[in-house]
Amino acid sequence: MEEVKRLIDDIRNGKILPVYFLMGDEGYYIDRIAEFIGTNVLTEEEKGFNQMVLYGKDVSVDDIVSNAKRFPMMAERQVIIVKEAQHLSRTIEQLAPYVENPQPSTVLVICYKYKKLDKRKKLHKVLKAPNGLVFESKKLYENQVSEWIRK
Rank of each mutant, 00 (worst) to 15 (best):
M1Q: 14
E2C: 10
E2Y: 10
E2W: 06
L7H: 03
D9W: 00
D10P: 09
I11N: 12
R12D: 05
R12A: 09
R12E: 07
N13T: 07
N13Q: 13
G14P: 05
I16G: 13
I16N: 14
L17W: 02
L17M: 06
L17N: 07
M23H: 03
M23V: 00
M23L: 06
D25N: 12
E26V: 04
G27A: 14
Y28H: 07
I30C: 13
I33H: 14
A34Y: 03
A34F: 07
F36Y: 15
T39Y: 09
T39N: 15
T39L: 12
N40C: 09
V41H: 10
T43I: 00
E44M: 08
E45A: 13
K47M: 06
K47N: 08
K47F: 06
G48E: 04
G48Y: 03
G48C: 02
F49D: 09
N50P: 08
N50V: 01
Q51G: 10
M52G: 05
M52T: 05
L54C: 08
G56N: 08
K57N: 15
S60T: 12
V61M: 15
D62V: 08
D63N: 08
I64S: 15
K69H: 02
R70H: 08
R70E: 12
R70D: 10
F71I: 07
P72M: 05
P72Q: 02
P72W: 01
M74T: 00
A75W: 01
E76N: 05
E76Q: 06
R77Y: 09
Q78D: 14
I80W: 05
I80E: 03
I81T: 12
I81D: 11
V82A: 10
E84F: 01
E84W: 03
E84S: 05
A85T: 04
L88S: 12
S89N: 09
R90G: 14
E93K: 08
E93C: 06
Q94T: 06
A96M: 10
E100I: 04
E100F: 06
N101E: 10
P102I: 00
P102G: 07
Q103C: 15
Q103W: 00
P104F: 03
S105T: 07
L108R: 07
L108F: 12
V109F: 13
V109S: 13
I110M: 11
Y114W: 08
Y114K: 09
K115L: 10
K116D: 09
K116H: 11
D118N: 13
D118S: 14
R120F: 03
R120H: 02
R120L: 01
R120P: 00
K121G: 09
H124Q: 00
H124F: 12
K125Y: 02
K125F: 04
V126N: 09
K128M: 09
K128V: 01
K128L: 10
A129F: 00
A129Y: 00
P130V: 01
V134M: 11
E136M: 04
E136P: 05
E136K: 04
S137Y: 02
S137G: 08
K139S: 11
K139G: 11
L140C: 08
L140R: 06
L140W: 06
Y141S: 12
E142C: 06
E142F: 09
N143V: 02
N143R: 10
Q144D: 05
Q144P: 08
Q144G: 05
Q144R: 07
V145I: 15
S146Q: 12
E147Y: 04
E147W: 05
I149Y: 14
R150D: 15
R150C: 11
K151S: 15
